[in-house]
Design a binder for these strands. Structure first.
Length: 280
DNA sequence: AGTCTTGTTCGACT
DNA sequence: CAGTCGAACAAGAC
């Protein structure tokens, strides 16, 4: 489940593999629905001859900027993976899009569940404008978070999962941030005290930074887990305090971690540290 | 065999 | 309008 730290890891790995400056020869779209907003043939035609000028990230999107001012937005959704290989090879079972460079390198978009999406856009804001603030930027202050939560009666967990609120958070890091801030996932956003928002702000930044430092979270060994470029595993799983740790003792108070469903999403928390309502 | 899972969007309700 | 809910997408994990 690629969230901000996993996507950041992929972007860094693609840079390290030399994708920046590569020139595109052709694109082979093997599962048409992966391409959003235009036909696969138009997409392939638009990419032909383009040189990649920059790789960046916005929320959970990978932004591949091209020399004609267009941007290729890649969203991995749940099981999308990218590989950058030095020579042409026959596409594997789940290689949905193959982009071949003039020097023979191939960028493979591999996705077992075919939920991932590629979109070519002239104006990056069109595809990314709806996203909330970047939580690791210096501009993401407590008061920015406060503004995003202001007047919202929604439960804090579904709100944090909403990419319009804060960009890049997903199920893993939201559970971790709420545990660290000692906030129950079903608390309504407008009931958080200023002190709680401050702790939540710090917690969001800490868990995401740690995730980036550990190159993302890879749980288990199944092929639907997160793998970065060249099949590299993230090693943040050991740093998780509550996610997928149902029944294990809370690292702070030893109460067994509970799993519930909040907003149709599996949710892990400590029933002792994270009370439903603050006591005041 | 059947159920669950998961990020995001979208449409239908409340 | 704001928010909630379920559906849809797809296939591996269990």
């Amino acid at each position: 489940m690629p969230e901000l730290p996993e996507v950041e890891t992929v972007v860094r790995d693609l840079r390290d593999h030399g994708l920046e400056k590569a020139r595109i020869l052709s694109a082979d779209i093997r599962w048409p629905r992966i391409i959003e907003g235009m036909s696969p043939s138009s997409f392939a035609r638009a990419l032909r001859g383009r040189t990649i000028t920059r790789l960046s990230r916005r929320g959970k999107y990978i932004v591949v900027s091209l020399d004609d001012g267009q941007h290729l937005l890649i969203h991995l959704r749940m099981t999308g993976k990218l590989h950058y290989i030095p020579a042409k090879h026959d596409p594997g079972k789940h290689d949905q899009v193959v982009i071949t460079m003039v020097d023979g390198h191939q960028l493979l978009f591999n996705d077992t569940r075919k939920f991932g999406r590629l979109r070519l856009t002239r104006d990056a804001d069109k595809g990314l404008g709806h996203l909330g603030p970047e939580p690791l930027e210096d501009t993401f202050t407590v008061s920015v978070l406060q503004q995003q939560l202001q007047g919202k009666s929604r439960m804090i967990k579904p709100l944090l999962l909403d990419q319009n609120c804060v960009a890049g958070l997903g199920n893993i890091y939201v559970d971790e941030a709420l545990w660290q801030a000692k906030i129950h996932p079903e608390r309504h956003a407008n009931t958080l005290t200023k002190a709680e928002m401050k702790k939540l702000h710090q917690a969001i930044r800490t868990v995401l930074q740690q995730g980036v430092e550990n190159c993302g979270t890879t749980l288990g060994t199944g092929q639907t887990n997160f793998y970065s470029v060249a099949g590299r595993r993230g090693h943040n799983a050991d740093a998780l305090k509550v996610f997928r740790r149902t029944g294990e003792p809370c690292p702070r108070c030893s109460t067994p971690i509970v799993r519930t469903v909040v907003g149709q999403r599996g949710t892990h928390f400590c029933p002792t540290c994270q009370r439903p309502l603050s006591a005041y």
